[in-house]
Design a protein around this nucleic acid. Structure first.
Lengths: 228, 228
DNA sequence: CCAAAAGTGTAACATTTGATACATTTGCGA
DNA sequence: TCGCAAATGTATCAAATGTTACACTTTTGG
């Protein structure tokens, strides 16, 4: 078992490898291999163990009641799965995790995790920080979803991207399709609104690169819901 | 300082009063009084302390960039404020907390919290459970917001209310105005859709009481997006 | 018990968005 | 580098939702 792998993930940041080894010395945990296509965790299965992906790639899919896949997230090694859902009064995996390629994972029973966290304050702080960051991202996405119109969402998104950045040109960094999905709107609607904003002279679109031409208009729209 | 108060909040559930006293023995923390109208925490202020409301009532308000109050939540004693935002890489209070009446609070510096959590495994588990539950609720609301039409949201909401309940009649338990706000839709639109569903024979509305008449239709709508 | 405030029900009309379709273009793996 | 799958850009039409307005009812606080 190569604990130096673990030292590279945020959960173990700031903890020397020797210390990590010591932490796991008396904590029941085991390594497990998964062939491509194997299921690491079923959706809605009781979440009674922490799974840390050591090598390979895992696909997390949320299936809605009709059986249609709603959301996909890729998890690359080395990284933990569903860290925030390990606890809670009715903790279940929110997604199905499937190996996208041959993978190995470190599996730690929930009871061990509690003991481990209590033993190392840095590890505890990391765990709490990761949980809080996750919750913050959820909160932000909710705030995001609360905007009424697509133009408002686009404006907010572009302003966020351009924050802490000298240039007024931003890189989307993802496909417009995936952006539409993130916004919860249809792809043609997103394209149309982007076109409209370009026609209005607010932005200039070049592939996945967008130049913000009238930042003031974007700001006003986000702040007041209308412009002028 | 009356630690028996603390034993009544979820964070200290399952911990004897004597043990709570012991926990706080060597942890820096202090009690503070707030007059009605006093501010316990500013929005976006660094979140470097855990505030546990011991008596009184606090109003949590989120202000959007234009200065308009977006959301209000009431916190009654005894309960902690913003427990999930204490940690995280850039932890700040997400709301402004103002005393709605004369209140007292126990204030614990962030560094003490870490030490306390490491010392008592039950407390640690409570903290993690509370965090996870909060995140789950956020997730669920996000799932909720992802429904396209108002009718789908209403259906999902009514099915959730009627779950684990013999009767097919549910009590809204809140005003329709606040429900519209929760859904992120305009009040007239919600009213109209409720009317439509009643005209279609799916539900029967009597004030804040709604009878589910065609549960199958609601289920189908939520599952497949369409009925028949 | 009264008056003011909050909540309700509904209608007409304007806007926004979704669904669908199709022609290109781009990017990636064999 | 070829070919195919994914992504893009755009148009048309239908459906859902927002906005505004107003009359009425219920709740609340003094």
């Amino acid at each position: 078992m190569d604990y130096s792998l673990l030292s590279r993930i945020p959960l173990f940041r700031g903890i020397p490898v020797a210390e990590i080894e010591h932490i796991f010395e008396n904590a029941p945990s085991f390594e497990k291999m998964y062939k491509k296509g194997a299921v690491l965790a079923e959706q809605d299965e009781a979440c009674n163990r922490l799974i840390i992906l050591l090598s390979g790639k895992v696909r997390a899919e949320m299936t809605d009641p009709s059986g249609k896949v709603v959301k996909v997230e890729d998890i690359l090694a080395p990284n933990p799965l569903a860290i925030l859902f390990l606890f809670g009064t009715n903790s279940r995996f929110p997604v199905q995790a499937t190996a996208d390629e041959d993978s190995t994972a470190l599996v730690i029973p929930k009871s061990s995790v509690l003991g481990i966290l209590g033993k190392n304050e840095v590890l505890l702080k990391n765990y709490l920080d990761i949980s809080a960051d996750f919750a913050s991202r959820l909160s932000q996405k909710l705030y995001f979803m609360s905007f009424r119109t697509i133009r408002q969402k686009i404006s907010m998104f572009l302003l966020e991207l351009s924050r802490n950045q000298a240039s007024s040109t931003v890189q989307l960094g993802r496909t417009k399709s995936s952006l539409a999905e993130y916004f919860g709107v249809s792809r043609p609607s997103l394209e149309r609104e982007l076109s409209n904003m370009q026609h209005d002279g607010w932005i200039a679109i070049d592939k996945k690169e967008i130049a913000i031409l009238k930042k003031e208009s974007l700001v006003q729209l986000v702040r007041f819901g209308v412009v002028k």
